[in-house]
Amino acid sequence: MITAFVISRSTDLLASIMLTGIFSLLSAVFFVLMDAVDVAFTEAAVGAGISTILMLATTSLIGQHYERRPTRHIPVYALIVVVVTGSLLVYGTMDMPVFGNVDTPVQQHVAPRYLNQSGDEIGIPNVVTSVLASYRGFDTFGETVVIFTAGLGVLTLLGFRRTEHQKNKNVIAAMYPHKILRVIGSLLIPPIMLFALYVQFHGDFGPGGGFQAGVIFAVAIILHSMLFGLAKTRRIFKDRSIYLAAGAGVLLYGGVGIVSMLKGGDFLDYSVLLSNAVSGQHIGILLVELGVGLTVATVMLIIYFNFSGRADHQHEDKT
């Protein structure tokens, strides 16, 4: 809470970004306390990791680390809007069910079925994964599409302007000259990828799943690009194949749904995939999580490559 307050006052962009990262980490801790381990995992990876990196990348692209505070207007109107909204919310919480109580509608109505029957209906211990990938699998499908959309957006916004000349140039990474970093870094990449795979397939039992795995996998490749130069990494992972792979992730998820349609079930009804409903659910969840992982990893790469690729252009434009 104090971090948030400081952010609102600070004019130093770098400091605010780091503080936002800390804020995310703190909320991840809070999520663990609230028993939401999956969410904590994601928040730590996304809020503290990805978004901080992106913010920093943007500031370095822009080269402006301080905010020029306009002296003329003091945002009284903003304060009023905020106070009104805030008091409305406080007013709204007056009748909210008591925190942590078992008898609230939230705990009583829909949730018990997930907790009591998902073990039999889907057969995997992590209820969050069951709900995520099966009961509310369509939301997760939508989420994958959102990621895909964002990747597409970043690609269209930042991905064009590269000339042939620049494409073939081998920009040496900042870290390349440091031998120790390079050796240790390359040692790290395989375990990170392995860990990503573990997270991917362990999602049924513990916290984890396609999204987190995708992020971790992308990190491994990003590390590679930091060590060996963006150009080199981009030669391995061609632009076109990356965005097609992102699309393939969405298609894999949707394809599972279509197959279940063809087999006589509803869209995303994994039970009909195999003769045994529970193992059908297993295979379905496995496949869609794979789709999510693929899309997320590739979109992260698209975003990272395009942000840092932009930096190279700007650098060259100046020199």
């Binding site: 007013y91 709204g92 009748d95 509608p105 109505h109 829909v110």
Partner: peptide, 25 residues
């Protein structure tokens, strides 16, 4: 928070029970 459901049809059935609360407002 007030109804425990996200389904629209289900919401329309369960909301009237709690409609006089400040939270629903």
């Amino acid at each position: 928070a007030m109804t425990g459901t996200l389904n629209m049809h289900d919401l329309s059935i369960r909301l009237p029970e709690v409609e006089n609360t400040r939270t629903v407002f």
